[in-house]
Design a protein around this nucleic acid. Sequence first.
DNA 1: ATAATCCATGCATACGTATGCATTTTAAGC
DNA 2: GCTTAAAATGCATACGTATGCATGGATTAT
Lengths: 340, 340
Amino acid sequence: MRSKQTSFDIAYRAGVSQSTVSRALRNSPLVNEETRRRVQEIAKELNYKVDKNASSLRTQQSGTIALLLFEDPTNDDSLINPFFLSMLGSITRASAKKGYDLLVSFQQMSNDWHADFEDTRKADGIILLGYGDYTDYEEKLVQLIKQETHFVRWGADVKGLSVVSVGCDNFHGGYQVTEHVINNKRKSFAFLGGVSTGSPEFLARYNGHCQALEDHKLKVDPNLQIDAISTNESGYEAAQKLIATGIKFDAICAASDLIAIGAMRAMQDAGYNVPDGIAIVGFDDIATASSTSPALTTAKQDTVLAGELLVDKLLQLVTGEEAKTQLMPTTLVVRKSCGS
Amino acid sequence: MRSKQTSFDIAYRAGVSQSTVSRALRNSPLVNEETRRRVQEIAKELNYKVDKNASSLRTQQSGTIALLLFEDPTNDDSLINPFFLSMLGSITRASAKKGYDLLVSFQQMSNDWHADFEDTRKADGIILLGYGDYTDYEEKLVQLIKQETHFVRWGADVKGLSVVSVGCDNFHGGYQVTEHVINNKRKSFAFLGGVSTGSPEFLARYNGHCQALEDHKLKVDPNLQIDAISTNESGYEAAQKLIATGIKFDAICAASDLIAIGAMRAMQDAGYNVPDGIAIVGFDDIATASSTSPALTTAKQDTVLAGELLVDKLLQLVTGEEAKTQLMPTTLVVRKSCGS
DNA sequence: ATAATCCATGCATACGTATGCATTTTAAGC
DNA sequence: GCTTAAAATGCATACGTATGCATGGATTAT
């Protein structure tokens, strides 16, 4: 029952050649309509499915996109940053919509990831997802370009490299949320998130944050910027360090929702009132952001749109078209963590 | 620079035949150690990578696992149930650990998903993930079995079918959380979650819930069971309906965390106090559960273990070994939503 | 020295599809 | 009716790898 059906079997049943079967199934105009119908009918009857390996081997196209997901190695190994998880979901959807399969792979930055998929012909192109805060990241991008691998990446534009990126406007997002807090009459701002050592994303958000303060004639106190990576725990600890400085502040801008959520808990545990005593804003708008108490005001990154853009641009590259880096705006989502 | 390297190129450079190259790269004992080293060195130098399509075509093995993710079609199209998203993450990790690539695909139940992957030789086996609450689900499983497709599924065991499943003990989990609430001196219990129309998972949780009540001589009031699907919104609405019945209750057991979270908000919006007035428990232990206010007490499903089990068992099937259905225990995670 | 044994390698082929080119069939033109 | 064009099909081959079988050389045993 299970012996695999090939196009030759269909050909035999239909009384035509294998070539004709192949053409008929691919709706080639070269084949007579009547023949095509017959072939397709038989194919369906026999539950025939094209062998993708053979097909890919012949055409040198796999109909597959590879998604490489880089994670902060300091994170708990078993959990994925919910923001990237959300991106993963939208990319999956977007590629399915385009008729492409999605090969998902977690990566340690140490690996030879730059070659592992397109070079093995398993994928037509690659999507790079993760924070670009690794020392040899750019170097590997250069390798990818040299190999003429088709790829797009999530994140800020890389200066000097002809790389197609889709990212959100972190600077503006940082500006946006900070300005919102300023409008709520806060005067002394802290910022939680790695700036010097951290990702370029965090840095851009911080820069936006500072710009907003300056534009409103408020002071930027470097002592109130505490490094943190994007986890609850790190946010919690950063907030504790913040309190330990003894410096007074009435607002916290976090580089990500996870940090904000951890910080919020730390402040509450320390007896502060949010938002009356301390205003807190995050960044990303992950699912949990709407469920905290008070619900978290944040800068939303549109993951659905992002996924579609990444896939669209990658496929443009694959088909030889031009594709341009694109910056998406963030949306201010006002909830309760700033007072109004 | 980019013209693709084949095993013939390596063979030419090494002064041996293509066969020897193939064997050398696969560490066949047939090839001389010295030769093997030389070949492997040259391969690395030329940045040669085996063409997986050709390899798969030849060996009829793809080194790939397909993950089919079914979602409740009534959900918002752009979001994925965080529990399944978490499963996706752990499965990705688990298959990477085994050296397999993971092909991820979202599915509408209406499609011919039962054939789409293994039959096209893109995957060696299939993992089915999603609630099994669809009318023709079993029928399609039967088809899969008939085709001798290798697959495992997440969920409760299917009676009468020789299918390998990995699931958690929903009955016991439902029992567990309910008993915990009972120990907190609650007397009148409501249950939110589709039972008659819904998934077998929800039904099992409900049955465990009822059993716990009976064992403690408490009444089960069918009027306090309200249908809901696994979303915040549905939970919110269900809680509203619950209030609208006018019947008194002091505890809510929800069939999932999302439902519980929605219900919690509905109760709070209606002026009830959680947990003092109303105790609430969920099911799953999604990330958000720890961030609600009060933090949600729930029955945790171990997604990391689940992912590993699914992958392990599938690979056992692929290699011709026996694999058995396995039921995982749930863990009671006590937070604040029940009072203690 | 000859036969028997073993080790290392090469030759040839199959996996299943897609497609350039040759060939046959059908229709059209005069 | 014969030539020419167009439409439909078949033939042959290539994609790159893995492997059964044959071959050649080296080693050992008799």
